[in-house]
């Protein structure tokens, strides 16, 4: 690997720029095993302080730095530079309104998440200590509770690009399935009623971009299929 990392980064400041542009940067390799976030930090701290992007934990837990990296969505903090074709093309998450440079407006994405009521709903009296689950019931949540809501899957979904106003998208539907599977939740009927909609759920056509790009290697397509089957079982 050469000692210089070449990048082309999407730049756009709606207050100043008429239209977006790609800006080239060259960054020295400062340590072994550099991640894309290390390179963005180097640019921000040593080359151009106006470069704007989100970051927080830096270890793939907070889900702040979802970006489009060489055409594939992923988290900058856990994407190794080694293996990326250079110049590395870094763009904001697709189909999102850009606030500035690599920062996008996630408001609609989180509104959709809120719409599925992603919290435990139960009317039965609260036990003395807590609502218990058996290890087997808890294991049902594996593969969905790990989602960090970074938005990589939803913004890579063509169905969401076209019908994002109504289709809930893979991340929200993965979480909807997580609450359907939760043995402690008592509102499965209401949750299914809310999901049974030609647009909210059935715009998923199994394109599987969500599964391909998920930084946590989760499978929203599987969760969406599970919701569809649960609805079918309820009807029959």
């Amino acid at each position: 690997m050469s000692n210089i990392i070449k990048l082309e980064i999407y730049r756009y400041d709606p207050e100043k720029d008429a239209e977006p542009s790609m800006q080239a940067f060259e960054v020295p390799v400062t340590k072994a095993g550099m991640k894309l976030l290390d390179v963005l930090n180097y640019i921000k701290w040593h080359i151009d302080g106006t470069l704007t992007y989100r970051k927080s934990c830096g270890e793939g837990v907070c889900g702040s730095d979802g970006l489009n990296i060489n055409g594939v969505n992923g988290l900058a903090c856990i994407t190794p530079i080694a293996g990326l074709k250079q110049p590395i093309k870094v763009r904001p998450l697709p189909s999102m309104n850009v606030i500035r440079d690599l920062v996008v407006d996630m408001e609609h994405f989180f509104d959709q998440y809120r719409s599925i009521k992603p919290w435990l709903q139960a009317d039965s009296p609260l036990p003395e200590h807590e609502r218990l689950q058996s290890p087997e019931e808890r294991a049902e949540l594996d593969g969905s509770y790990e989602c960090i809501m970074c938005g990589c899957c939803t913004t890579s979904c063509p169905s969401w690009w076209w019908n994002g106003d109504r289709f809930l998208g893979p991340a929200t539907l993965l979480q909807a399935d997580r609450w359907l599977k939760d043995s402690r939740d008592e509102k499965i009927g209401e949750r299914l009623d809310q999901l049974e909609d030609a647009f909210k759920l059935y715009r998923c056509h199994q394109i599987m971009n969500c599964m391909d790009c998920c930084p946590k290697e989760l499978n929203p397509t599987k969760a969406i299929d599970h919701i569809k089957r649960t609805l079918l079982i309820r009807k029959s």
Partner: peptide
């Protein structure tokens, strides 16, 4: 293949 996925067969990432 799509019908199999709808039915819940071969749903792991590897099998997809």
């Amino acid at each position: 293949r799509f019908l199999m996925l709808d039915a819940g067969w071969c749903e792991s990432q590897r099998m997809m």
